[in-house]
Design a protein around this nucleic acid. Structure first.
Lengths: 108, 108
DNA sequence: TCAATAGTTAGCTATTGACCTAAGTATTAA
DNA sequence: TTAATACTTAGGTCAATAGCTAACTATTGA
C-alpha cells in the first residue's frame, strides 16, 4: 500500500545492483523460498536478505512467511510501472524528432 | 561503441538517482546545452556534470561539444534496451501464471 | 525432546557516491 | 585584446551501501 508513494527512481535504484537485478530475473521464472533463491549467489545469507529487503521495500518483490519458510514473489505491477515510464520517455523523444522532421519538410 | 558491453543493471543504476532520473525526463523533451539542462537543479555545476558523466558513461545520453557549448541528447536506444528487459521479466512472469492456471483447469 | 533447518538480528568495516569549493582552460563577443 | 561565458579539473568531506561474522529465534522431522 505504500507502493504508490514511492518515486520511480527508487525502483530503478533497486534494480541497479547486479545481485538484485539477478534476483528479479530468477523470480520472473516463478516464486521461490529465500534459501532456494539465495543458492546461486555466493554471498552470506544476511547480505542476501538485505538485497531482498530492498526489493521488497520498493515494491518489486512481495514475500510471505508460512511456518519457517518465506516465499518470494515478483510484483509484476511494479515492473510494469518502471517499463511504462521508460516507454513514455522514448515516445516523447521520438515524437519530438517527428515534429522536427515535419518542420524541415515545411521549409523545403 | 562501448555501450554493447555495459550490463543493463548499470543502466538501471544510472537511472536510480533523482537528479539523473530528472535529467532523462528533461532530455526526452529535446536536446539541451549543459547550462540550460543544469538550470533547474540547485546543485553546483561540477556535481551536475558528474551526473551527466554517469548518464553518458552508461549510454543513456550522448554529448557533443561545439565551440564552448556541449549539447546533450537522450540516447533512445538505451532507454529501449532497459524497457525491453522489463517487458521480458513481466512476460515470463505472466506466462508462468497462465501455465499454472492451465494446470489447475486440467486437474478440475 | 532434540537436532536440523530456515530465516533473523546485531554490529562492524571498507568502499563508493553525492556533494562541495577553488582554480583552471577554451571560446566568443565587444 | 580583454572580459565574459561555458564548461573542466582537482581535491576534499561525509553519509550510505554492500559486504562480513557471530549469535539468536522459530519451526519441523526423527
Amino acid at each position: 500500500m505504500a507502493n504508490q508513494s514511492i518515486s520511480l527512481d527508487r525502483v530503478f535504484w533497486a534494480l541497479g545492483d547486479p545481485t538484485r537485478f539477478a534476483i528479479v530475473e530468477h523470480l520472473s521464472q516463478g516464486s521461490l523460498s529465500v534459501s532456494e533463491l539465495a543458492k546461486p549467489f555466493s554471498m552470506a545469507l544476511p547480505t542476501f536478505l538485505q538485497h531482498l529487503g530492498v526489493l521488497e521495500k520498493y515494491g518489486l518483490v512481495s514475500t510471505k512467511k508460512v511456518g519457517r519458510v518465506r516465499t518470494c514473489t515478483l510484483n509484476a505491477e511494479r515492473v510494469d510501472q518502471a517499463r511504462t515510464w521508460l516507454e513514455i520517455q522514448e515516445k516523447q523523444w521520438t515524437n519530438r524528432l517527428d515534429a522536427l522532421d515535419k518542420l524541415l519538410e515545411d521549409k523545403s
